[in-house]
Amino acid sequence: MILQNEIWLITLLGLAAVTLGFIFVIAQAGKPTDSNRVQNTANAIRRWWFLALVVFGIGVTWATLKPFPIPDQHTPLKAAQVVNVVAHQWAWQLSRNQLEAGVPVEFRVTSADVNHGFAIYAPDERIVIQTQAMPGFTNKLLYTFRQPGTYRIRCLEYCGLEHHAMMAELEVVAAARGDQS
């Protein structure tokens, strides 16, 4: 399952859980009972609810941050393919636009003018990775394309009146035999 679909499923489940919780309480709200009993029960549940959320949060934090999803910006990434990217209002300047699948690519992304967002869209028009393009800074992004095809780069940080038209293409071709050994 692609990442966006997993995110969507988790979100819908979370929204459904919150919705059901509210529907349950609202459905019960018209039937009065002793306040102290409700409060005591709620306090007891709250302790476990708090503990469960903390444990869950720590688990998710560990699972999503290890390995750290952003490459070290201060050491050479030693990728076999390097693309220097300079964003301009409203065009992308790429040092190359043909890449091999299965071989890590380092994108060195900066901007010549304002903030831009460097987002790579797969042939199915889903984002696979992104970083910001900032004047005065270079963000280093490491990505390995799994599937050959035409990928599109779109700007995802509002940069002026042609922001929506700021697009470039990357051709990702199958790796030559022996390259992935």
């Binding site: 990442l3 999503t64 750290f68 967002g117 987002a119 992104q130 995802l156």
Partner: peptide
């Protein structure tokens, strides 16, 4: 979540 923000940001 950083990993998710990489595909959902903006």
């Amino acid at each position: 979540t950083i990993r998710i923000n990489e595909v959902m940001h903006n």
